[in-house]
Computed example of a mutant assay.
Amino acid sequence: MIDTPRVEDGAAIWRIARDSEVLDLNSSYSYLLWCRDFADTSVVARDASGEPMGFVTGYVRPQRPEILVVWQVAVDGAHRGKGIAGTLLDALTDRVVRDLGITGIETTVTPDNVPSDRMFTAYAARRGAVLDREVLFDGGLFPEDGSSAHAPEVLYRIGPLTSG
């Protein structure tokens, strides 16, 4: 079941993000806030018992209120490979296009994150939307150094969007 996140989902969403081993993990507190303050621009997938098994978090870009920024997408390891992430992204898009007038999405993907690249490329194709890519933040802008240096974040712009 696809649902709007609730504050009570914050801990589970944090664990899914942590266990992804791909996402930059934010504080557990930030996931609680996300479920409270950005629930209208985020979604969760629930298993049969109602527990979150995947999520997409997003927000409306303040300088461009027609753009949804997709912050994080993750699915619990036991449920990966079943198309849940794409289903979540489609459900969220349908809702924000209809309710908020969103016409495009932006997200960032590191060059080594092949699954995310494939998911957003397939999403753009499904929606009949244009996908443009450009480096948004060069890796040198991040404070990490040495072996833990941050990869560049490539901005994906996808649009125009219509509800599916």
Rank of each mutant, 00 (worst) to 15 (best):
A45K: 11
W34S: 11
K82Q: 15
V69L: 00
D132S: 12
G139K: 00
I158P: 11
G159E: 12
P152F: 09
P111N: 08
P160K: 10
Y123Q: 05
G50E: 14
E8Q: 04
V69P: 01
P52W: 03
F120E: 11
P115A: 10
V22H: 08
L88N: 06
R95P: 03
L89M: 14
A149N: 14
D138H: 10
A129R: 07
L92R: 05
Y123I: 00
L155A: 03
P160T: 14
G159T: 15
V75Q: 04
C35Y: 05
V69Y: 02
F142N: 03
K82A: 15
L88F: 09
F120L: 08
R127P: 12
I16Y: 01
P143W: 10
R61Q: 07
T57V: 06
R15S: 14
R61M: 12
S30M: 04
A17H: 07
T108K: 07
R64D: 15
A12T: 11
E106K: 04
V44P: 09
P52E: 10
A17M: 07
S116N: 04
A151G: 13
D138I: 00
V154W: 06
A149V: 05
G54M: 05
L141P: 06
Q72T: 10
Y123C: 03
G140V: 09
M53G: 08
V130G: 10
E134Q: 07
P115Y: 10
